[in-house]
Structure formats: structure tokens, C-alpha cells
């Protein structure tokens, strides 16, 4: 169980990135944080990963208060961030320092098989495509068997086909240990494909606007009606979060800007 209680983050320059975030994630739940840019999704993930410090509030994992990076929490960034001087298999093994050599080898071999890169084990990252690199990054996070896996828009730089295949790889790895997954995304389709729950966020300051349950059976049929209606629900929530009641003034401003332009 991952609990966020009254979490706030204010940067040194006074920008309020997050204000009073309360969220609890059940075991084996996949949660998608969705929202426009600048609503603090990535900041929230960095706080959970322990890469930044919260200004107020606590993060709790199974009654343990987190401060700083924790062995049970893994993260996959927007970019693969592989170490270019390590081979693919050494990159996957990077976080397995405290594990015996045999165990490490077995886990890396299994992960390589899972992501379908066995024949690339001894290559340098530079020889892989973007999608393959991101698969290695996902494997690197999974081999340590984290209880919580944080994904920071890891598929946003990839084309649609690659993305779909990575979704499958991700779910395949997830099925084995069923960690909590917190996925940051701005892609509604992706959120509905992967998550059990979508948290819609709102900017300035970053806060939670709405929660939507996406209890569809897996594997999910992307062309089915339930999928479509879920996508529509999330989209409309997102729409409301981005331009709440004061729709009219925004239009007015646009018109003024347009007038200036002409």
C-alpha cells in the first residue's frame, strides 16, 4: 500500500508545483496520473522516487515513511537513461549489486527473455533503437523486484506500434510480481489500456481534480465499446480540468491575442 498524505511541493522560486495531494494506491494496482503539462505529474513521481524532497506531507509505503530513494521503489524515466559504457545485460544488472552472481545472471537472463532482447545481451546501448532501449530500462527497473514501479511517460517518445508492443511487454513483466505501478502519461488511450484507475490532475498549483475507475477486464479490447466509453470519460474529465467554468474569458483572451497578432 502506497499512501501520499497532504503532499506539497513549492520550489525555491515560489512556484507551487503540488498542493495537498492525498492518494492511496492498493497492492497490485496500476494508477495513471494524467493531466496537461505543468500540472506536477512528474514532480509527484520524483517525490515518490526520493529524487526531490516534499515541502510538506508524507509518503508512506506499508507504514514506512519514505525519505529519499528506497530499494523497493523503481523508476523508468522518460528517456531510457542507460549507461552507455555498459552492455545491455550489464545495464539490466546495474541495480543488482547486493545479489549473488548466479542469481543476478539468472534474473538478467529471464528479463532479457521477457523483453525479447536475448540476442542483444552483449551489445552497447548505442546499437539499439529507442524502443529497445526503453525496454532495457524497464527491465532494469523490474529485475530488482520493486514493490512500487514509477513510470514517467516512458513511452511518449515512441511511435504508436512500438508503444503498443511496449505496453504488452510491460504488462507481461507486471503479471509476474504484480507491483504497484504509478504511470505518468498525457495519453488517454495509454491510461485506459494499462491502468485500473486514472487520476486526473489540474495545474497551478498541481492538484488532483478527479479520479476515475477503469475496471475493465484484462486483456483489454481496444476496439470494444467499454474501452471507448472509458476513453471518453477520461477525456471529458481532462477537458474539464483544463478549462473549468471560466471558458468564456479564455476565449476572450484568445481573441485579443489574435487581434494583436493581426
Amino acid at each position: 500500500m502506497l499512501n501520499l498524505e497532504h503532499l506539497s511541493k513549492t520550489y525555491a522560486d515560489g512556484t507551487r508545483a503540488l498542493s495537498d495531494i492525498n492518494l492511496s494506491v492498493r497492492e497490485a494496482e496500476i494508477v495513471a496520473l494524467i493531466g496537461g503539462s505543468g500540472c506536477g505529474k512528474t514532480t509527484l513521481l520524483r517525490l515518490i522516487a526520493g529524487l526531490d524532497r516534499a515541502s510538506a506531507g508524507t509518503i508512506r509505503l506499508d507504514d514506512e515513511v519514505l525519505s529519499g530513494p528506497h530499494p523497493a521503489i523503481g523508476i523508468v524515466f522518460q528517456e531510457p537513461r542507460l549507461l552507455p559504457w555498459l552492455t545491455v545485460s550489464d545495464n539490466i544488472a546495474f541495480g543488482l549489486d547486493g545479489v549473488s552472481a548466479a542469481e543476478r545472471k539468472a534474473r538478467v537472463a529471464h528479463a532479457l527473455e521477457k523483453i525479447g532482447l536475448v540476442e542483444h545481451a552483449d551489445r552497447w546501448p548505442r546499437d539499439l533503437s529507442g524502443g529497445q532501449q526503453q525496454r532495457v530500462a524497464i527491465a532494469r527497473a523490474f529485475v530488482t523486484n520493486p514493490k512500487v514501479l514509477l513510470l514517467d511517460e516512458p513511452f511518449s517518445a515512441l511511435d504508436a506500434f512500438t508503444r503498443a508492443s511496449l505496453h504488452e511487454h510491460l504488462l507481461g513483466l507486471w503479471e509476474e510480481t504484480r507491483p504497484i505501478v504509478v504511470l505518468v502519461t498525457h495519453d488517454v488511450q495509454e491510461a485506459v489500456t494499462l491502468a485500473d484507475r486514472a487520476i486526473v490532475m489540474q495545474p497551478k498549483p498541481g492538484r488532483i481534480f478527479d479520479e476515475l475507475s477503469l475496471s475493465l477486464a484484462r486483456p483489454r479490447d481496444k476496439s470494444g465499446l467499454p474501452f471507448e466509453s472509458s476513453v471518453r470519460r477520461v477525456l471529458s474529465a481532462l477537458d474539464q480540468s483544463l478549462n473549468p467554468p471560466q471558458k468564456q474569458p479564455q476565449r476572450e483572451k484568445d481573441r485579443q491575442a489574435a487581434a494583436l497578432w493581426w
Partner: peptide, 11 residues
């Protein structure tokens, strides 16, 4: 910095 962060994540 991004690579250094990878090091931080793995403590």
C-alpha cells in the same frame, strides 16, 4: 545529471 540520478535511484 540524468545519469547521476540513475545512480541516486539505485542508492
Amino acid at each position: 545529471r540524468k545519469l547521476v540520478e540513475v545512480g541516486h535511484v539505485f542508492r
